[in-house]
């Protein structure tokens, strides 16, 4: 298939949009891993809870309330999960953490399937987000008929805003300073009299809340079915690894890279299905700590 300027633009937009979903999931994942050192395989299930909550509230009460309610509810779920289960595994080996969070993910997935059925639940886009954007209006160099769904562009904007907010929180606030210090050396922070455990609880809740935002805006794109969580989890984990364990900037960069790679290889099924693994292998061979992984951190 010849790559015209129109096709190139469409592929770039698609890559950005795919990357946006990944970044919203990988961001929470890398935040939790970077801060708490917990490999949270239940993060995909948190996204799953978010999309089911979002579609239920959206269908019953409208999108506005879904947007207002879902992220805080996910924050609370995250906090309860951390206090009730995850904190008991901080000092246990990574394999134990993986087993318990993976088990939890399966339980959540099957519970949702039991409650809502295995089939998709239609998630209608609110009227203000429906329709298509004529790209020529914004990118005059394009010729002819190039369109893109408005909702997917909104998703890209939401991802940019969320990423910016998380960066601002971590780099412009005292809370962020403590968290970043905790990511480097939690033990030293405790010696300095900082109650890092309470902050870890908030970080876990924050990671879950980002999954909540992803669910509200990503649900109509990824669809609402019980399999979605697991399907997004593997690429999101690889993104965390490619970006550098615990590196937020790395997660953003890797999300865009994977999104673009998937978009540009779409016509070639055999490359398309393995491209994410191919990139992971190449990056880990060339740069074992990941794209933006700090030297000595989780290396």
């Amino acid at each position: 298939m010849d790559m015209t300027l129109n096709a190139f633009t469409l592929s770039i937009l698609t890559g950005l949009q795919l990357g946006s979903i990944y970044v919203l999931i990988a961001l929470g994942l890398t935040l939790i891993f970077g801060t708490l050192g917990v490999v949270n395989f239940a993060h995909g299930a948190l996204y799953l809870i978010a999309i089911y909550l979002a579609v239920s509230i959206n269908n019953a009460l409208g999108f506005g309330l879904a947007l207002i309610l879902v992220p805080p509810i996910l924050f609370i779920i995250g906090v309860l999960l951390e206090r009730g289960l995850i904190q008991r595994f901080y000092d246990r080996p990574h394999t134990d953490q993986i087993l318990v969070t993976f088990g939890l993910a399966i339980v959540i997935q099957e519970l949702l399937k039991w409650a809502f059925g295995a089939n998709n639940i239609p998630f209608s886009i609110p009227s203000w987000g429906n329709g298509i954007i004529f790209m020529h209006d914004y990118l005059p160099f394009l010729e002819g008929f190039v369109v893109y769904p408005k909702w997917r562009m909104i998703l890209v904007v939401v991802a940019i805003v969320t990423v910016s907010a998380v960066f601002a929180l971590l780099h412009l606030t005292r809370f962020g300073l403590v968290i970043r210090a905790g990511m480097r050396d939690a033990e030293m922070l405790q010696f300095l009299g900082v109650n890092i455990n309470r902050r870890f609880m908030v970080v876990f809740g924050l990671g879950a809340m980002i999954a909540g935002i992803a669910g509200v805006f990503g649900g109509p794109v990824t669809q609402v079915s019980p399999e979605v969580g697991m399907q997004l989890l593997v690429p999101s984990f690889l993104i965390v690894v490619i970006g550098g364990m615990g590196s937020l900037g790395g997660a953003v960069l890797a999300s865009i890279l994977i999104g673009m790679a998937q978009s540009f290889t779409a016509p070639y099924i055999y490359i398309n299905t393995i491209i994410i693994y191919l990139i992971t292998v190449i990056i880990l061979l060339v740069r074992p700590r990941g794209l933006l992984g700090a030297k000595g951190v989780f290396e």
Partner: peptide, 15 residues
């Protein structure tokens, strides 16, 4: 088979 977001393929159709 497990694709949930078909945007990358639909872009090719659009084009």
């Amino acid at each position: 088979l497990k694709t949930t977001d078909f945007s990358q393929y639909l872009s090719q159709v659009l084009n």
